[in-house]
């Protein structure tokens, strides 16, 4: 029961994108089409699972003072593995994700979970947390991508949905990304009756830089 809770935690209650507001950059950049969003989500989930397991295994070995660089090396290794796999097997997705594939390294979801969860919990729990958070990220990304692709290009996963109406291509461009994300966070606020906003105020807990950030003490970070 407890295990299931860890797994489901990342899906809705602590959804990394819509509730904790981590990993905003890849969310906005790769949600232009459902296929890209799915690729990004799965790549990040794989990295998250791998890094959570390894960091949890090494939690007694890594000295506290240099833990962040150590985590970054572990994460960068898994990102390189994913990059090579995607390049070899799904070159289309590899090309579409472009620069955002190596940038998974600095995705705050991954470093945040290492800092918040993996270095305190057992290997099994960390693996479940990685899968849960990764799936939460994928789901949020795909939800956003569906909205943007349907309105912006008139397709879903490349399948044409309607004809005769000109799609609003601005939704697939930068402004549409910010707009869709803003509306989705507002929707989460509405559905959870404001609980999300309270959590966002404490959002700094998930940020790996919180210890060094002046804003974190005052709770000023991330709106």
């Amino acid at each position: 029961m407890k295990k299931l809770k860890i797994l489901l935690n990342g899906l809705i209650k602590e959804n990394p994108v819509l509730v904790l507001c981590l990993g905003t950059c890849p969310t906005l950049a790769t949600s232009t089409s459902v296929a890209n969003a799915f690729g990004m989500g799965i790549a990040a989930t794989f990295v998250l699972l791998g890094s959570n397991v390894v960091i949890s295994l090494l939690k007694k070995v890594i000295p506290d003072k240099v833990r962040i660089p150590c985590y970054i090396v572990v994460i960068a290794t898994f990102v390189t593995v994913v990059e090579m796999l995607l390049h070899a097997f799904v070159p289309d997705i590899y090309d579409a994700l472009g620069i955002f594939l190596p940038l998974i390294v600095v995705n705050c979801i991954i470093l945040g979970r290492a800092e918040m969860f993996a270095n305190k919990n057992s290997v099994g729990d960390s693996a479940l947390d990685g899968i849960g958070m990764g799936l939460g990220f994928t789901l949020a990304l795909m939800l956003m991508a569906s909205i943007r692709e349907i309105i912006g290009s008139g397709t879903w996963l490349g399948i044409p949905l309607y004809s005769g109406i000109q799609p609003m291509s601005i939704m697939t461009l930068a402004p549409g990304g910010f707009f869709t994300f803003g509306c989705l966070v507002a929707l989460m606020n509405f559905v959870t009756k404001g609980k999300v906003r309270k959590k966002q105020k404490k959002g700094c807990a998930g940020c790996p830089s919180a210890a060094a950030c002046a804003g974190a003490e005052k709770g000023e970070c991330n709106a």
Binding site: I170, L173, A174, F178, F181, L187, A223
Partner: peptide
């Protein structure tokens, strides 16, 4: 600002408008 839009959502929507200007 409508209650549920306060904080992060309205910030993102403002960012969207600024980004339209940059287009």
């Amino acid at each position: 600002i409508p209650e549920h839009f306060r904080g992060l959502p309205i910030t993102l929507i403002a960012a969207s408008i600024v980004s339209v200007a940059f287009m």
